[in-house]
Write a protein that binds this DNA or RNA. Structure first.
Length: 303
DNA sequence: TTCCAGGAAATGG
DNA sequence: CCATTTCATGGA
């Protein structure tokens, strides 16, 4: 195994693995203590995932982000955990708003992730009306049932299934795995990607709102899930998924941003949570969203 | 029991 | 176009 360590001081604004990987953005990692999404950090535990047929694992202790991999993964760790984002600057430019300030202050080191688009698309199709812990369980179950096996040091890991592998599943199989009414959505979307009818990666080059519309052609993908894919996998830092928690924040803290439709409310809250950057009116709105989401969901608001 | 969870699709007006 | 209803499932 290749290995390395990155001093967290090298990451402007710090980095917190637990907050980043267990805040409901990514469901593609497992913890080797079996306590993923159980609500408690463990500095000794490794976060493990399979990337392009290679095992990658990271953990954080003593001010260093340690990684091990079956390949040279130094650049991969930087990319997936967005270690080059200048969190200090992003937080400093965030709106001077009590909720946003409190959320940034309470969860230092929380970074957006840069996950692969197809697994993210399927993860958030599964997310409909689910708690984060169950979403993670569903994604893990899909990997175990349909993903490629990887054996390292006598332990078996599973990659997230490819579009072809998931398209080979049946609706009944996925219902038996506990996906409920999302089962046909997952199969049909996997078929769309496997056949070449459409691919989430194609949204990357479109303007934000066109990219969101493009993703909604996938079965089981509405505007909210599309926003999650744009934010967590396609580098759209302005995307603000309007889920139950953010809608609650709009009701309680930003009632003037409620414009009725998703598209209009989205525009208003993006400009409220983001910052003006040249002719861009909503820069990093998705970053603020991720902090506020986590702050509200974990019940940390007001300390 | 009832309610809720990072909603979307189908239906009805 | 917008509002309502239906769809699974496990945990508190």
């Amino acid at each position: 195994m290749d290995a390395g360590a990155i001093p967290t001081d090298d990451c402007p604004g710090g980095v917190d693995c637990y907050l980043t990987l267990e805040s409901g953005q990514s469901y593609l990692w497992e913890r080797d203590d079996g306590e993923m999404y159980a609500g408690e950090p463990n500095p000794e535990a490794w976060y493990e995932t399979v990337v392009d047929g290679h095992l990658l694992r990271v953990r954080q202790r003593d001010g260093r982000l340690e990684w091990e991999s079956t390949t040279d993964a130094a650049d991969l760790v930087r990319e997936r955990l967005r270690l080059d984002d200048d969190l200090e600057r992003i937080a400093a430019r965030a709106p001077d708003d009590p909720l946003v300030r409190e959320a940034y202050a309470a969860h230092t080191g929380l970074r957006l992730v840069a996950d692969p688009p197809f697994p993210t698309l399927i993860s958030f199709i599964c997310s409909a009306q689910m708690r984060v812990r169950r979403i993670h369980r569903m994604v893990s179950t899909l990997a175990a049932a349909y993903g490629d096996e990887l054996v390292v040091d006598g332990r078996t890991y599973h990659a997230f299934p490819t579009p072809d592998q998931l398209a080979g599943a049946t609706e009944d199989e996925l219902r038996d795995l506990g996906l409920g009414y999302r089962a046909p959505y997952v199969v049909r979307t996997a078929e769309m990607v496997a056949s070449g009818e459409a691919h989430p990666e194609a949204a990357r080059d479109l303007p934000y709102e066109e990219a969101r519309d493009y993703l909604t052609q996938f079965v089981g993908v509405g505007e909210k899930v599309a926003d999650c894919v744009l934010l967590f996998a396609l580098d759209f830092d302005e995307a603000v998924p309007l889920d139950t928690w953010i809608k609650g924040a709009i009701t309680d803290y930003y009632p003037d941003c409620d414009r009725g439709s998703y598209a209009d409310t989205s525009r208003a809250i993006r400009e409220r949570l983001g910052c003006v950057d040249g002719d861009v009116p909503d820069r990093y709105a998705g970053y603020a969203q991720t902090y506020v989401f986590h702050h509200l969901r974990t019940g940390a608001v007001g300390d």
